[in-house]
């Protein structure tokens, strides 16, 4: 089987969701009213805007993730060929990891790993 079969899976998934929602549209009851279209906030109308600029301290984590995830991508090829490369690969990955862990420790010490 070739990789184009992925398209089949894609289409099948779209079909599954699309069909079910369309089907539900036809058989499900529908009664529109303004109260129902309110966003749910425990029965109280929402105060102020929802899409506000607000502080979720996870931005730092996203950056850290970016750094580490790119590193992970580099490790994958190494992992595959590690058995053939042997000792040289091991020493190189130790150096690589040393730098990586150093980065993590730096972030740790700088309190970047604490959700403020």
């Amino acid at each position: 089987m070739d990789h184009q079969a992925l398209i089949v899976f894609f289409i099948a998934a779209v079909f599954l969701v699309g069909f079910a929602i369309t089907f539900a549209h036809f058989i499900a009851p529908s009664s529109k009213n303004a109260q129902k279209a309110e966003a749910y906030e425990c029965g109280i109308p929402t105060t102020g805007l929802t899409w506000l600029q607000f502080n979720v301290g996870y931005y730092l984590f996203a950056i850290l993730f970016l750094i580490f995830d790119v590193e992970t991508v580099f490790i994958f090829p190494w992992a595959v060929v590690f058995k053939q490369v042997g000792m040289v690969g091991f020493i190189e990955i130790i150096i690589f990891f040393f730098i990586l862990i150093l980065g993590l420790l730096y972030a740790w010490k700088k309190h970047a790993l604490i959700w403020e």
Partner: peptide, 26 residues
């Protein structure tokens, strides 16, 4: 669940609101 009403939220972003279930399933 099939027989339940599909409710749209007045101020919701319609396109993204509809696309989201597709993405998780795909």
């Amino acid at each position: 669940l099939l027989l339940k009403e599909l409710i749209f939220i007045k101020n919701a972003d319609k396109i993204l609101f509809n696309v989201a279930p597709f993405i998780v399933i795909i």
